[in-house]
Nucleic acid binder design. Structure first.
Lengths: 254, 254
DNA sequence: ACCTGAACACCGTTCAAGT
DNA sequence: ACCTGAACACCGTTCAAGT
């Protein structure tokens, strides 16, 4: 309704709104990183004064939260419970969605960490938790393990995706045309220069770090966690020798 | 040598040094959080001017990095390769060391995320990687899996420990005397108020979230990952049905 | 109801000057 | 070599004033 008149106002002014502000914030974060999001830059981009922004948004923290939530929401499409394909494929789809979102918006990794660490009950945590948890449920994991399994996967996915984005950003920063492999070689070389007495393991692993493909590594980690879930909840298997699964761990602090 | 004269200078002035500055920064972070660490507060605490601090430290980022590294170094004592006890106990000891460090210094969770996302080749990442990796090696994991297994555990441990610290901090902030269980009840209640159509899984899990013991949950997650490692590398087991472990995953983006 | 923009308090950092 | 402290540029936020 009233669609005829909308055309003219689009060009210059287009009336400020919370959505437009958040949209501009995301663009600014993508272009200049978290340090580049200032009210000065934002007012310039939106052609207004700071007061106008504060009318729609309480403060900078809320703006960052809204930008984070908007990007995450777009990345993990909650959708109807039953998508096509196997649960494993569903899990990969959700994980890759987050992986690519963080790859496209490198500031997201840090912001997610900050936000999950500040208010786990905000809108972002449930979004990610739900997206991963549904796949866990579809895998046939018993309900008693749902929380643990989903938590492990969530933390791994976010951490590893953030690490990947960091590698990508560092490679870009080192020199415009630097190859990703070349950059990983630099890191690997740095690790090989560590003290042999203090860092024997890290040095030994430096080679693998050089050659690995990030996406493949990411998926291998997910497979590892899924294997653990299966091993723990399938009564048929001999039960892993490494760990007493059912017995309560008990406190072993000092 | 020259031990006799050291007494007098300790009280008031005690000569500024990088170590003293980092020490004061950690104290300030512990007392007031990341927002409380300012050069103003720091100069007051150290009874100097900002110029004196800048003589020992390049900028605030370097100071935060140094504070983070100091706390992590104290938490994961690298020590001689072979400690007492089983590899599983060793793994728990390392994980609990980080868990407690983040619990004692809540700002550490966010700062580790920032720092690992910015410079994975800095001193902090190898410290944590080495501490966890040695236990992986001691568990008999084949070398080809070292990198994946250590990465998964590192991301999980840091993420889950940060989450725990966040819960603790939020419980404290909600009201001085609020019980941890009471706070988790609040979060659980918030999750149960989510839209049933969009968040069926999260709502179903809200109960578990209310009742769980954080430390127990943390250790259960580690057991899960260890079970996955065992399942993947032990040729004896029937191989988990959920995932094709050996076959290269291949790109499945869209 | 929504926006303007000058003003304020505070921050990280610099630097000429001291010892 | 090490420290002082005034000064600078920039930041998030406020608020009286407009429409």
């Amino acid at each position: 309704m009233a669609a005829a008149r909308t055309r003219r106002s689009q060009r210059r002014t287009e009336a400020l709104s919370r959505e437009r502000i958040v949209e501009a914030a995301v663009e600014l974060l993508d272009a200049t990183g978290e340090g580049g999001l200032t009210f000065r830059a934002l007012t310039e981009r939106l052609a207004t004064g700071p007061g106008a922004i504060y009318w729609h948004v309480a403060n900078k923290g809320e703006l960052l939260d809204a930008a984070t939530d908007a990007v995450v929401a777009a990345a993990v499409t909650v959708g109807p419970a039953g998508s096509a394909g196997s649960p494993q494929q569903g899990m990969r789809a959700v994980a890759l969605g987050l992986y690519e979102a963080i790859d496209d918006h490198p500031w997201l990794a840090t912001r997610l960490a900050v936000q999950l660490a500040r208010s786990p009950w905000g809108p972002v945590a449930p979004r990610i938790f739900e997206g991963i948890g549904r796949q866990i449920r579809a895998l046939g994991v018993p309900e008693s393990h749902w929380f643990t399994a989903t938590s492990v996967l969530m933390h791994y996915v976010l951490g590893a995706a953030g690490q990947n984005a960091a590698n990508a950003a560092s490679a870009r920063a080192l020199a415009p045309g630097v190859d990703r492999a070349e950059f990983l070689g630099t890191v690997s070389a740095a690790w090989e220069r560590l003290d042999p007495d203090d860092y024997p393991f890290t040095r030994a692993v430096a080679d693998q770090a050089r050659e690995h493909d990030d996406l493949e590594e990411f998926l291998a980690g997910i497979d590892l966690v899924l294997a653990g879930i299966t091993a723990l909840h399938l009564p048929g298997t001999t039960g892993p020798a490494t760990t007493q699964t059912a017995a309560p761990p008990g406190r072993i602090r000092d």
